[in-house]
């Protein structure tokens, strides 16, 4: 299983970025190999609008099965739902802990957006 986590850092000790669409990158963690790679999303930090949609599209293209972020807006959720990507939200935390929390069933899964579009 591949997990995408929004972040401004580049390793498992970095903080989860709580904003989804404007996150500068995503860490892609493979639960089978325990390895990770980085997905650049910096173009969307400066998107005119619709950053969430494009970001969701990037995650789909990267082949993620699960997303961990702080929030997710309605349009991004529509894209992620269309591709059956499970979305979990976390509070302020480092990526490693968020992944452990996910695997221990401590994170909340959301299926409808939790923040308004903007």
């Amino acid at each position: 299983m591949k997990i995408a986590i929004s972040t401004a850092g580049n390793n498992l000790d970095a903080q989860v970025e709580l904003r989804f669409g404007r996150a500068s990158s995503f860490l892609l963690f493979d639960t089978d190999t325990r390895n990770f790679s980085m997905l650049d999303n910096s173009e969307q930090v400066n998107a005119m609008q619709g950053a969430g949609i494009k970001t969701a599209q990037n995650i789909v293209t990267a082949g993620a099965d699960v997303l961990i972020s702080g929030h997710c807006g309605p349009k991004a959720m529509q894209v992620l739902n269309a591709k059956n990507i499970a979305v979990y939200v976390t509070e302020k935390n480092v990526i490693g802990t968020a992944i452990a929390n996910l695997q221990n069933g401590l994170l909340e899964q959301i299926t409808t957006h939790d923040v308004a579009g903007h």
Partner: peptide, 11 residues
Amino acid sequence: IGCPVISAITG
């Protein structure tokens, strides 16, 4: 209460 405010308060 629009987009700029949301950008200013998140997190």
